[in-house]
Amino acid sequence: MKSLSRALPLLLCLLANGVAAADALEVTVRRSFPGASDEERRTRLDQDEVQALCSKHRNRPPADVAARIVESQLQTIRYPEDGKLLGDWRAGEKLASIGTGGHIGRIQPDPADRKKGGNCYACHTLAKKEVAAGNLGPSLTGIGTVRGNGPEAVRYTYQKIFNAQAFFPCSSMPRFGHSGWLTPQEIADAVAFLLDPESPVNKD
């Protein structure tokens, strides 16, 4: 009991300091975007639980946190109404190159109805003919040849694009379906671009 009474002030002090540091960041963020509307703050600056956890752990979550993220993110996955997870690879190919949409602010905003793409080429090599491909993510050239396009491969690929953190907690990849950036149909098209044997990802 005596040791607890000695330890308690120290513990409180440590907790208070941790909270103070986190508060300094959040106060700074709140103050630094005075032009943002309430809606923009809610959707673009406020963090959901996963964003907060990944930020706190600098994308290296301890095992228990990682397991919690996987569990909660698997619950978020939704499917197209027609149930078809393998869409049109040509539509998927177009989405892979579109990097516009969703920019706000007064300097260089997008029109509100501008098409949002997957911008896959920003981070991945896909069809060999597109040489301007980034390397933040792994090369996916020939992935359909390796994985095939059976139901399991199709389902996993769909889920991975819908919410990458259901498999890789704190992955760098956007949760395209969960955020609503891409629709379930668009994700099915991206799946086809990756897995369809006729797609240039697998053909050339």
């Binding site: 964003q51 080429y121 955020s179």
Partner: peptide, 26 residues
């Protein structure tokens, strides 16, 4: 802390693109 703070529809932080060697966007 801001460098690692993720938010927004794409879950991006500065660290998403700027914490590994020899990476490119396109």
């Amino acid at each position: 802390d801001f460098f690692y703070r993720r938010s927004g529809p794409l879950d991006f932080a500065c660290a998403t693109c700027h914490s590994q060697d020899d990476r490119r966007i396109r």
